[in-house]
């Protein structure tokens, strides 16, 4: 009864560092798990990301004037089940960054509020296993006037985004595999400078932001109390330019990264409303991005807002 797990109040969180941004993004939007109707899953997460080497265009190097660039993220997440086929997810992170060497000041602040509508229009039992299709629409919005134009120490890019995602999940017994692809539209960003150089001098404080594509593939074990998975993610900026030799990174660089990692989620046997999540990943390839190692840990608690508590196990 694979669908049992989907009815359960589960949320799995993974974290990915978006290239140079040092942005740790919680991604319940990338798992094939739905909250039950009227259930609200709330969580807090801590994520850490660090890199010493980075790709300046395609040239991999370190920078003794940065040392190791690291960031800490503290995030609150909410996932609400409108019904078993329609969930709403929201996330708000606070991020702080620093460089271990050099003279540059780190930055900190509340970053972007992101929200997803997650819809499972198809769920079909096959002869063997269950296949389900998900369609997701997401948006994010900066909620503070943080500085975007200070890479690699900015806490984010201050772009408003809209995303569309298609995801397919196949489960056989306790084993599953999920694949998804996301297109992200990114709005232009206004910076504090009145001109900047990309591949030409632009006499404006507005930066044209290229859109992005990402793909995510995961495979693992899923039961009512434990989920463990291996994840490969790829993120591609659809245009943009390379950092020139010994230049600083810029918002509209072509930031690409491929990461590989693992995640787990453990739901307590005695208190089934409470779950602990964790994950780690490493950047195996990149362009205009840091070769980051990321890890995260989170605690989630589910509250059932159903009028009558009949679904209780």
């Amino acid at each position: 009864m694979q669908t049992v797990f989907k009815k359960r109040r589960l949320v799995l969180v993974s974290v990915m560092m978006l290239a140079f941004m040092n942005v740790l993004q919680a991604q319940t939007d990338e798992d094939a798990i739905m909250m039950s109707k009227n259930n609200l899953c709330s969580g807090i997460m801590y994520g850490h990301s660090s890199w010493k080497n980075y790709w300046e265009g395609t040239f991999k190097r370190d920078n003794l004037n940065l040392g190791t660039v690291s960031s800490n993220m503290y995030s609150i997440m909410e996932n609400y089940g409108v019904n078993r086929k329609l969930n709403i997810i929201a996330n708000l992170p606070y991020i702080e960054t620093k460089a271990s060497a050099g003279t540059m000041h780190g930055m900190k602040g509340i970053q972007d509020l992101s929200a997803w509508v997650k819809w499972m229009p198809v769920e079909k039992n096959l002869k063997k296993g269950t296949i389900s299709l998900y369609l997701l629409g997401g948006a994010s919005l900066p909620v503070s006037n943080y500085v975007a134009d200070f890479l690699p120490l900015s806490i984010g890019l201050h772009s408003k985004t809209l995303s569309g995602k298609v995801m397919v999940d196949y489960q056989l017994g306790n084993f599953f595999t999920t694949a998804s692809a996301t297109y992200t539209y990114r709005s232009n960003v206004t910076i504090d400078r009145t001109s900047y150089y990309t591949t030409a001098l632009v006499l404006s404080n507005e930066v044209q932001m290229p859109d992005m594509m990402s793909e995510n593939f995961r495979i693992g074990y899923r039961s009512s109390h434990l989920i463990a998975e291996a994840v490969v993610s790829n993120m591609t900026t659809l245009s943009g330019f390379d950092i020139r030799k010994n230049d600083m990174p810029f918002l509209s660089n072509q930031m690409n990264a491929t990461t590989a990692g693992v995640n787990f989620k453990y739901t307590l046997q005695k208190i089934s409303e409470l779950a602990i999540t964790g994950g780690a990943n490493y950047t195996v390839a990149g362009r205009n991005s840091g070769q980051a190692t990321n890890f995260n840990i989170g605690v989630f608690y589910v509250v059932d807002f159903s009028p009558k508590k009949k679904n209780k196990k």
Partner: peptide, 14 residues
């Protein structure tokens, strides 16, 4: 910070 960055005119600028 806005003022600093507005006038920074450092590496890669005019």
């Amino acid at each position: 910070t806005r003022i600093v960055h507005f006038w920074a005119d450092g590496v890669g600028t005019y």
